[in-house]
Design a protein around this nucleic acid. Structure first.
Lengths: 122, 122
DNA sequence: CTTGACAATAACAAATCAGTTATATAACAT
DNA sequence: ATGTTATATAACTGATTTGTTATTGTCAAG
């Protein structure tokens, strides 16, 4: 029951937040791999990896292909596309804001704050 | 300066995994806003928003500017750049794998599985 | 049909998270 | 000084996450 519902950004970003899962994805950029092959580099039990893969699949970041008792995993575009698309909005805004920064800086000396906050940093 | 250590991908992706925080970022694409301005659209208390902002700042996704008792927040490029850079690897791999897919599909009928997995979907 | 390899699931513990209310701090206004 | 506004912090709670071990299901080989 693959159901293939729209992988929420919640799930996609949450999946990417874990270093083990990102390492698994990095490994998969070098091609398909079975669960055992993916588990081998990690000092972690197989069930742990299985659950990481479940999270990745659920996030639309990987897909699995069954072959005998083995499950071959590979990258999926679905989740990454969703993430990418959402980020593009931020990217665009950052560029725009960066362009606007000149104006902001130009406008600031005209209205100096009455108290400069005590500098606690460093 | 802000100490500006490399915002870990863990923190950046984890910050992006929350819908409230993404909504805050979306709001910030329309320009700077104070904490109260950011809190207003949400049915959530101010301390909750404050902590979300802390997470976003820690992830390098926003920066804050003090002005009186107000804190003006705006998008930061730091965290987004980190995320973007990491994702570019995946993007590249996906394209490569997609190109390879033809070969994979061409190679598959040559070695038909002895048992086709029972189709449970739909 | 039994065995062994591959993978998924269940049950559990420790850690983390996202929200709450209550309180503290800091600047501004009176 | 006092009150008000804007924000941060503390302490707590319930839900979620990440790992573990033990078990189960499936297939392929003999």
């Amino acid at each position: 029951m693959k159901r293939l519902r729209p992988p929420s950004l919640d799930h996609a970003f949450a999946a990417l937040a874990d270093p083990t899962r990102r390492a698994i994805l990095s490994r998969l950029t070098r091609g398909e791999a079975t669960v055992m092959q993916l588990a081998q580099p990690f000092s972690m039990t197989q069930p742990a990896i299985s659950r990481h893969l479940k999270v990745l699949e659920h996030a639309g970041l990987i897909v699995r292909r069954a072959e005998g008792t083995k499950r071959h995993c590979r990258l999926a575009q679905h989740g990454i596309a969703a993430v990418d698309q959402w980020l593009s909005t931020l990217r665009a805004a950052l560029e725009t804001n960066y362009n606007r920064l000149d104006q902001v800086l130009a406008a600031m000396p005209a209205e100096p704050p009455k108290h400069i906050e005590r500098n606690k940093q460093r």
